[in-house]
Design a protein around this nucleic acid. Sequence first.
DNA 1: CGGGAAATGTCAACGACCGTTGATAAAAAG
DNA 2: CTTTTTATCAACGGTCGTTGACATTTCCCG
Lengths: 196, 196
Amino acid sequence: MSTTVDKKGRRSTAAETRERILVAARMAFSKAGYDSVGVREIALAARTDPAMVSRLFGSKENLFTLIASEAFRVAAPFDGPVRGMGQRIAADLLGPVVPPDPDEFDNFAFLLRSIGSPVAAPILSAAIHQSFIQPLSRRMSGREAEQRAALLTAYVLGVAVLRVGLGSPAIERSGPEMVSVLLGEALQRCLTPAIP
Amino acid sequence: MSTTVDKKGRRSTAAETRERILVAARMAFSKAGYDSVGVREIALAARTDPAMVSRLFGSKENLFTLIASEAFRVAAPFDGPVRGMGQRIAADLLGPVVPPDPDEFDNFAFLLRSIGSPVAAPILSAAIHQSFIQPLSRRMSGREAEQRAALLTAYVLGVAVLRVGLGSPAIERSGPEMVSVLLGEALQRCLTPAIP
DNA sequence: CGGGAAATGTCAACGACCGTTGATAAAAAG
DNA sequence: CTTTTTATCAACGGTCGTTGACATTTCCCG
């Protein structure tokens, strides 16, 4: 049998195969976590061979590190003015997409499903700080900005734990209700504390 | 070589061995998570044989379920009057024991290090709801009590994620500072919302 | 245009761990 | 002494990440 070809009968570039593996690995890690995902599984989804993962990325750990370092870029609800940002994030967090589309990458699932792994945890820790908490705190004014940014991150991650990690039915269906208001206020208080 | 004996030269009861395994497993799961802990490792720490784990508990999964079902009993800071409970929980969460003593069982570590495992996650989900969120919500009054209890739980778990999961230096050292006040207020607002 | 070099893909195997089970030994109980 | 309880050991079938040898395709340069 011949080697893998794309639709036009051509063979893949290394860069193309790399990209397919990256996409497949992102999804797999997001769905099942670092420890539960094997390179064979990733390679199958990427229509390639397990050996290519080691070839192109060095190791499964390197592949994971690469994905993690790009996963936590500060997202859409964090753009725009600081005023009202709390409610914006809350609305996005408790938004209508419940449960999230299983066919697209989920930051929170990616984080929570791998945070227990002794090898993945330090990688995720570094990524969260460098890509999220620090950039966010730089947009904030006032004292202890980084600590407040971390607290905000904690709230967000906590909601994520309950929703994707534990699949809690208690928070799941929440439109513009009390919980959403409470969360929005709590987030806003991290951004702009009442006492300056 | 003879079989395992205790200090008095006597042999262990099944109940005693069971207890040693339980203690060892609690610690191991809390330190490394469900997937990373092997029955051989547990048995070694419990001074017994890997086969005894399957013998006495049926399976590693059963053992984990047993531990999980007893791990999330509502804890000390949740006793007493609802007034000021938010600050009490915050103080306990951000308390002086940082990092927590690695020689004693840690609820949060136990939860977070195993939440990524496909087999452990549903077990933990059930345990958290039955042992924590529901009992807590029964102590609360007002509308949407269970949803607010879940939100409070999310905050607490989020802080735990940052501290034990990610080892965040941003929240770690926090005495009676701004972050502690903010967290306490946010928790209290879940317990006793301003708008009844 | 041809041939060798480079790039890409495939396959099989390694050693290491995993949870579990059955056979068997040792100790205690009756 | 026989039965029951507790412990030990070896082995099973399986999955894991990684590697080296080899096959195939593409490219480049003479």
